[in-house]
Design a protein around this nucleic acid. Structure first.
Lengths: 219, 219, 219, 219
DNA sequence: CATGAATGAGTGTTCATTCAT
DNA sequence: AATGAATGAACACTCATTCAT
């Protein structure tokens, strides 16, 4: 679950660096600088408020260079979202609680660490971008649903199903509304990032409470 | 708990264009049109994306006229937020559960109806504006905290205190994190307004589930 | 055959100058300045070489003002051509040689004066614009054909037909190639405007020679 | 009178990549490709509208390579004109009608074939470039006058002089205005290339008519 | 010599704001 | 007070030119 974009493993094939001129690594680095700078700028100012000149300045490149990588500001925006969305929930697979472990404990074990790092990573930034700009960029909403939202919902629903089979849950509330578990996540992101940045709640703590509510910890 | 800032006056009230000079009613009516048009525009496009010309066109007034009411676009934005924020939670006072009523039932009775109307009113729009623009407009965050957030937290905390005194709650979880109750509210606003507008969750239902989790309904 | 755009007679209807703010005359004047300045700039630099900032500077207006009248540089270009094309051949009707006059004399009488003024008016400028930019602006070619070329061809062909009926012409050469008469016109425009501006040929003289070739003057 | 500057070499000639270092042939070939591509681009888009990147792409070379041959876009433009102007009228010498041939027949014999090939060669393209860009590039006007215009005028004037000596012409009209003969040439180029490409006149036919007008063919 | 990524001055266009009417 | 034409600073985007590889 490496947060940074990191080396794309698909590139591993033995290249023939036939090209003269700048090396492919240099190009990749320029692209990466650009994407990071753009994310910062978009997060701070929104799409309409972001300025290409500020982005390139942050990235340490010339204004025109950005346009070698993305033909328009909009394309850059979508590129940024696509880039940083992918690794968002990269570590999530089907829930597999160990036999000696309750589903509640499994969820605590697998979800809370994600929560802990969420604010220090760029995940929250990307999520807030989706909130702020989703109305005007259907693309990023689709991407977010595909990469993050749907997967998470599926994960929780599957866990809920296991819990009901095991008798750990006695009602189907979580099956019908899997997002109940994630509500505190959005809350924390909103409070920490916007409403109450001076006294940030602990998202991890809030999530733990919520899981406790749904899966009361055994004494 | 009238939600709207008076019904949009442009289409009502038989005009009395009697008095020479600018009648105060006319002025108030123009102002109201302007504010409603501006809210729509800001909600749809964000602050930076909104255009004064579109706002005045929506309001049916000339471009220059807006500047008689608000000296700049920013001032208009803050005016809009101030105008529509005030009545947001106007009906909320200290929680006073009846003697024959559990605190859980009291919360169900007082909160769920608010939730029911939240999407049909402009509350959710204003809240999303705060989310999207809060970073760049400290003013609107302050206003939101003052008018909505703090009051709600206080209200829930007070209810939690009563519940603990009455023995309805056995732990101080809600006292420490009153926002737990409101997490589904944000979730619903985000899902309905942005993420999953095609299959909107029922905010009221979600809230009911959450209250049930915290205050298990007696059989 | 007024050369300048002049007052458009269609505007004659009694207006109700209901509008507050700038008078319609002022607006028309601004528009006219813009069009003249734009013609100058386009003629001097071609479409691609023309600069909106230079055009507005020549017109004595602000850069943004041009865009109130034409949404893009291309639209301005086509507007210019449309504006100055219309009065190009405005005086031409069906050829009506007097009974006591040969067709040759009639053509001399009606065509040579036009030729005399052609370089001092903007007609030649517009024609050269069509030459230079026609490839990339089908619109202006169509306009030129409609307003100038086709009418002229028709005029000459009709005159040729009369001349043949009267026995003044003994072959159908001019009927098959009416443009023969106008060839010297293009030549003069090209030589005077581009190739040999230092020793300009007289277009009128050249045209007279050509008419003499086709309609040998009676002794 | 080979018209083209050597057939475009890129698709011919078996390469001999033998000698280490840049072979002179290779260089000449690259240069030729560049010039042909540039002519196409300039003809299609004019000087200001032409793009160096499109030119090099058409030529199949890298952007930087063009700058090894011509230091600027302007220099390339002048290089193109110089290159394609030279062979324009290369075959023209002093007029030498055979003894058994009238001057009219001589002109028909020597000029009409040139006219026939004019649209299929690049001559017309170069001429139109001169028309479109002459105003801003005195150089190309000078080149055109030197290589084409002046020679042609001299040729016609010399022929006219011979015709007068021989008594074939009874007036000095052609001596005073040699360009009368060439007027249909420009007309055909303009009509075919710009105004009426859908129904192109035959330049050769038009020229024949014009010669007939001046030198009436003997019965 | 060739390459093409990078540069940055320059250009078309927008839009908040002003002000004559 | 209201109007909307005019303003011009600001911004997205282009493209001739350079230079490290």
């Amino acid at each position: 679950m490496t947060d940074e974009t990191g080396d794309n493993p698909r590139e591993a094939s033995p290249r023939k660096p036939r090209t003269r001129g700048p090396s492919p690594e240099k190009t990749a680095q320029t692209r990466s600088c650009l994407l990071h700078a753009a994310l910062d700028e978009f997060v701070e100012n929104g799409f309409a408020g972001a300025q290409m000149s500020r982005i390139t300045e942050r990235a340490g490149i010339a204004k025109g260079t950005a346009y070698r990588y993305f033909p328009t500001k909009s394309a850059l925006f979508e590129g940024v979202v696509a880039e940083f969305m992918a690794p968002l929930i990269s570590g999530i697979g089907p829930p597999e609680p160990r036999a000696d472990e309750s589903v509640g404990d499994f969820l605590r074990r697998s979800l809370i660490p994600v929560m802990t790092t969420i604010e220090t990573s760029r995940r929250a930034d990307v999520a807030r971008l989706v909130l702020a700009e989703g109305r005007n960029f259907p693309f990023i909403v689709q991407a977010y649903r595909r990469e993050a939202y749907d997967r998470t919902i599926d994960f929780v629903r599957a866990a809920a199903r296991i819990a009901m089979e095991r008798g750990e849950l006695t009602d189907d509330r979580l099956l019908r509304h899997p997002q109940l578990i994630f509500a505190p996540l959005w809350l924390a992101m909103i409070e920490t990032g916007i409403l109450v940045p001076d006294a940030p709640v602990s998202g991890a703590e809030l999530l733990a409470e919520q899981i406790d509510l749904i899966f009361p910890p055994s004494r």
